[in-house]
Lab assay of single mutants.
Amino acid sequence: ENVVSAPMPGKVLRVLVRVGDRVRVGQGLLVLEAMKMENEIPSPRDGVVKRILVKEGEIDDTGQPLIELG
């Protein structure tokens, strides 16, 4: 899985990584606010952040691509 998608609709509060960062499975990639709760979205695998497809403050839909890993 190279693309991390939104598991729920919500607002992107914080992006915790930058392009080029090495990430490990379970590491937080970004924080979504949904139903007044903050949810940290973890990396599904080890890899390198290739692209960040959303910006802080954006509203996303379920299934929307958020981050691409390489």
Rank of each mutant, 00 (worst) to 15 (best):
I41T: 02
K55P: 08
V19K: 06
L29F: 00
R14L: 07
P44N: 05
Q64H: 13
P42C: 14
V15W: 08
P7H: 08
P7D: 06
G28R: 07
R45Q: 10
A6T: 06
T62E: 13
V15N: 03
L30I: 14
P65T: 08
N39D: 05
V4N: 02
L69N: 01
D61N: 12
R51I: 08
K55M: 12
E56P: 12
L69E: 01
I59A: 08
L66D: 01
V3M: 13
V31H: 02
G10A: 06
V48A: 04
V31K: 00
V17N: 00
M37I: 13
L13F: 00
R14M: 05
D46K: 06
I52C: 03
V54P: 02
V4W: 00
V48C: 12
K36M: 14
I52G: 01
D61V: 14
L66V: 05
L53K: 03
V12E: 01
K55Q: 12
E56N: 08
D60K: 15
P44M: 05
R14P: 06
L53S: 03
E68P: 02
E58S: 10
L53Q: 02
P42Q: 13
E68I: 15
D46I: 05
L30M: 09
V54G: 03
P9N: 08
N39R: 14
G57M: 07
P7Q: 07
P42K: 15
V15Q: 02
L69W: 04
K11L: 09
L16S: 03
I41L: 08
G70H: 14
E33I: 10
R51N: 09
V19I: 10
R18Y: 04
V19A: 07
V49I: 12
I59H: 12
I59P: 06
G10N: 03
E40Q: 10
K36Q: 14
I52E: 01
S43G: 02
E33D: 07
R24V: 13
G57V: 05
V48N: 04
K50E: 09
G10K: 02
E56S: 09
D60N: 15
P42G: 10
T62L: 13
E58K: 09
D21N: 04
P65M: 08
V54C: 14
Q27A: 05
